[in-house]
Design a protein around this nucleic acid. Structure first.
Lengths: 246, 246
DNA sequence: CTAAATTTGTGCGTATGTATA
DNA sequence: GTATACATACGCACAAATTTA
């Protein structure tokens, strides 16, 4: 008798608020009624309203500020087209969404390949590699963290420009031709080690894209990863279907 | 003074549990200590443990069963390669992940195009269209909902096979050639109207892919959408970089 | 078959901390 | 300093699902 899903209070409240946001009763940027007002209106306790608000926060619909109130989030997403025009960078796309883009190098480190990276780059475990990490901001809010792993030679070749340029335009400029780009999209929770960069609690919903750039022969050249705030991004790819690419 | 992030109890508990799961102290499939045991160990109240568990549930790490306990989720993801080999369907990929795939038609309806669909298919608002919806299961658990919108003519042509076949192999069989496939990846919360299909609460983290199939000239032929459980899927695409595709 | 025990899940009342106006 | 409002945390009660006696 699993279908007799009785309803729960917090769920009803969350649903009601969701629909008000969707239909514009609470438009983007506006403040929601206070906790105590919502308690009165729905005739429930604080913890029930709280739980409903927590859910909507996870969904990226609202954001609370202590002492101020809870606000409906502005919705424009950054629309990132992967492997599109290499002259159009993620910076341009952030600007198109109406935000001011900024770029900040987090680190450029030498390290030894762990199991995961070694397998993806097809180098022996423990090999010397370089990792480059960059944060992108939209209106001074960090929205995506990009990590790239290079073999030493390529790392030295690109080092100076990496801190100021995005990688796709850079590769084009340096005439390093990458024949194939494999992207793996998944959805994760913000990991503890990345939480500080985003100023958000570990566990926030994130999108993750793992990149593998390969030569024509299929040998991996560069691997990378983007961890982006799930509520701020849409990623687009265009696939042309000319004969089976296998 | 925003950097003096004092720590919170529920956060500390969540972090501790997360790391135990990560390092295998609680291996996949195993039961976590009960609420009251965790309360004792961490010397916190029930509500604090509860909130930590709620977070891990949102992250897809654990799953609770009333009367039984809380269990670490088995992690194999279904790895879906989009526009890869058209002979390999999502069913095969579910099987590869170690689950039994199943397919269930949810509906085939005539409807009038709303604003969103009309714009994407480039038909007048209110045009007659057909929508086809299918659920895919892995071990009898619904994991993805696929929706497709067709113009009437195409809908009639494909109708009979749609309930039993996946769309990519079907198009190949019928020699309907689609020159370009645009995929837009985003991350959303499970909507109220879809919650019943998945037997999960509205707001659960989902991945969403919007498809637009176009002819060489760029005219949209079929549009579709996949809503998939974020914790169960990885989507892969392969982009070859031969000359700027614009 | 029934009853008790265990365990998760929902909900209330209350207190305290902290950020903002 | 004061008022407001969100955020965290405690103790308690009860409902629902499962196992065990």
């Amino acid at each position: 008798m699993r279908n007799t899903r009785r309803s729960f209070l917090y769920h009803d409240v969350a649903t009601a608020l969701r629909s008000r946001i969707a239909r514009g009763t609470y438009p983007p940027g506006e403040r929601l009624p206070s906790l105590s007002e919502l308690m009165e209106e729905f005739e429930v306790s604080a913890i029930t309203v709280r739980r409903a608000l927590t859910e909507l926060t996870y969904e990226g619909l609202i954001r609370g500020h202590q002492g101020l109130g809870v606000f409906v989030k502005e919705k424009p997403r950054i629309h990132r087209v992967l492997a599109g025009d290499p002259d159009r960078s993620i910076g341009d796309e952030i600007a198109r969404a109406g935000f001011t883009p900024r770029l900040e190098e987090v680190g450029f480190n030498e390290l030894e390949a762990d199991d995961d990276v070694a397998a993806r780059l097809r180098v022996p475990r423990g090999s010397r590699l370089f990792m480059h990490q960059k944060l992108t901001f939209a209106n001074d809010e960090p929205v995506a963290l990009h990590s790239w792993w290079f073999r030493p030679r390529l790392a030295k070749q690109l080092r100076t420009d990496l801190s100021e340029q995005f990688i796709f335009p850079l590769l084009k400029k340096r005439k390093i031709d990458v024949e194939n780009l494999r992207c793996e999209f998944s959805s994760t929770a913000l990991r503890e080690e990345h939480a500080a960069h985003f100023g958000q609690p570990a566990g926030s919903p994130m999108m993750r894209i793992d990149y593998t750039m390969t030569t024509k022969a299929g040998a991996p050249v560069i691997i990378g990863q983007t961890v982006a705030r799930a509520d701020r991004f849409t990623f687009e790819v265009n696939l042309s279907q000319r004969r089976g690419r296998r």
